[in-house]
């Protein structure tokens, strides 16, 4: 009831990347990859912890990851890791006021200086780096 009265968009609105340009898309992907990496970290800790159960248990776990599905998962993890790092550096610099433009007299049609080409370029470079890393990772994992 309170939510309906306040008319908040909620998680559905927060996670909608389609309406406000590539910056909002990068925000959405950054959050998604962050959650993905957190899930991977938990899985990774579980995977490596099997070594305390002995060599056989460890080898059985390794066999589980040496499958096409396991390789696809690792390829995705590589992509998530590279995008999250590269875009994260852009966001961190931005948070310090670096690369967000200078205040000035706004002139019609009021293009926001903080949403400048450098920011957009960094987002595209992050996507490209993630794609390249995934391709290289996939070629190594599936190469044998």
């Amino acid at each position: 009831m309170a939510e309906r009265l306040s008319n908040r968009e909620g998680i559905k609105g927060m996670a909608n990347p389609t309406r406000y340009g590539i910056e909002r898309f990068a925000y959405w992907i950054q959050r998604l990859t962050g959650l993905g990496l957190l899930a991977y970290l938990i899985g990774h800790i579980y995977e490596t912890s099997t070594i305390v159960n002995g060599k056989i248990a460890w080898n059985q776990m390794l066999e589980l990851t040496q499958t096409p599905q396991g390789h696809i998962l690792l390829t995705l993890v590589i992509g998530m890791c590279v995008f999250h790092t590269a875009n994260g550096i852009r966001v961190m610099l931005g948070h310090g006021g670096i690369g967000v433009g200078k205040p000035g007299q706004p002139e019609y049609p009021y293009k926001a200086a903080s949403l400048n080409y450098k920011q957009r370029l960094c987002i595209w470079v992050s996507i490209a780096l993630a794609a390249l890393a995934m391709m290289y990772g996939a070629s190594v994992l599936f190469g044998d």
Partner: peptide
Amino acid sequence: HFAGSCSHVCPKGVDPAMA
């Protein structure tokens, strides 16, 4: 988190994301 949506919709060029 610097999503920049505020600056996208500002009708006066205030650019809240930069601020």
